[in-house]
Write a protein that binds this DNA or RNA. Structure first.
Lengths: 206, 206
DNA sequence: TAGATTGTTAATCGATTAACAATC
DNA sequence: TAGATTGTTAATCGATTAACAATC
């Protein structure tokens, strides 16, 4: 049961499987198949079986997968059978919306710290959290042992803040700023830039 | 000069190239190389050259790429040398933040219609736009010829709204709802779900 | 049992990289 | 010219799919 080297691209699909399974469970379904899951997600059944088989044997021939059991396994694999404390840096319009979003907790994350560098915002509250001064970022995150952060600052500030996050020992950064940041290999970054997604589509203008 | 079949994954990188080039231009740089571009983006120089060569010869041996020229070419390839009207459906916290975001226009998109089904919101304004009733979605989008939309409604409503968008002739949907939607093959969907990105990272917990 | 679906293998398909001639 | 970097080819690497024995 030694963890083999799982391709990044496979890991990337696991959260989609988990999300679909959770949805099925909420619809009262108990069992599904690679066929059904695949048709919901637009992924081939063979690929789903292959992906899952990297981690174990979760299904039953002739029957399919127990939705609750498979979801539980995926939560464990993705390490979201626990709740991660997340710090959000940058409380502009987007940061505010993210801070208010209620959907994190049930999927393994809890926003538990907010930072901004605007004196007018520091000390005010959003969703029960006091906005703290970004100047305290490094000592504070380090002290609290927070390793997951979301970056919702302007693109021009993203690299500087990312450097501070790295300094604070942060391991995972979800970057909403429309720019790439450079970090050591020990730190992982994921990006969300709506314009990138839009441009990926308009290429296919007919 | 017949458009060859370009892999999706290549198309997906073009907006990143464009974003980095635009940033370089704003820094006053005039020339770059696949080496430099690659190191900013964490992509190999060979891959960048290969990707670009699918569309033409944009560089000069020994010199590299003219940043302004290459950016212009990419805008043309991605069809963002024009401005696309975008409709945003769902004006909750996230939709509001998206509507206020000033960064769309210079990258080829303009939010020009807002929809919600909450009577308390309909008729009010956000960023100079009057929120319209979702009930008018189909006729309205069709009349205005809008083909790009952003979907910021709850997951439970996403499929129903997506069906209406398809009915209205929409071709591109950027889905912020944490769910997959089924649409005909003629319609493209891109997804933004922050939790999916977070879970992709926490898998690598050490 | 008969029907269905998994887990897995082998084959296919596609993407990335290394290397280098061309040339600015 | 000498140095640098492109565009492109061929080789390598990796991912997806088809097919089917196993088995519930």
């Amino acid at each position: 049961m030694v963890a083999a080297e799982i391709p990044d691209i496979v890991v990337g699909r696991l959260p989609l499987y988990l999300r679909a399974l959770t949805q099925m469970a909420s619809e009262g379904k108990l069992i599904t198949s690679s066929q059904e899951l695949g048709s919901r997600l637009g992924i081939s059944p063979a690929q789903i079986r292959k992906d899952l088989s990297q981690f174990g044997e979760f299904g039953k021939q002739g029957t399919g997968y127990n939705i609750g059991f498979l979801a539980e396994q995926l939560r464990s694999i993705l390490h979201v059978d626990q709740v991660w404390d997340v710090a959000l840096v940058g409380v502009g319009d987007l940061g505010r919306a993210v801070a208010h979003y209620a959907g994190f907790l049930e999927r393994g994350f809890r926003i538990s710290a907010l930072y901004d560098n605007d004196p007018a915002k520091i000390g005010t509250r959003i969703a029960d959290l006091v906005i703290q001064d970004s100047a305290e970022l490094v000592t504070d995150l380090r002290r609290r042992g927070i390793s997951v952060t979301m970056l919702a600052v302007p693109a021009t500030e993203a690299q500087a803040i990312a450097d501070r996050l790295v300094e604070a020992g942060v391991k995972f950064i979800l970057c909403y700023a429309p720019t790439s940041v450079r970090v050591p290999e020990t730190v992982r970054v994921q990006y969300i830039d709506p314009v990138v997604h839009l441009q990926r589509m308009t290429y296919y203008r007919r």
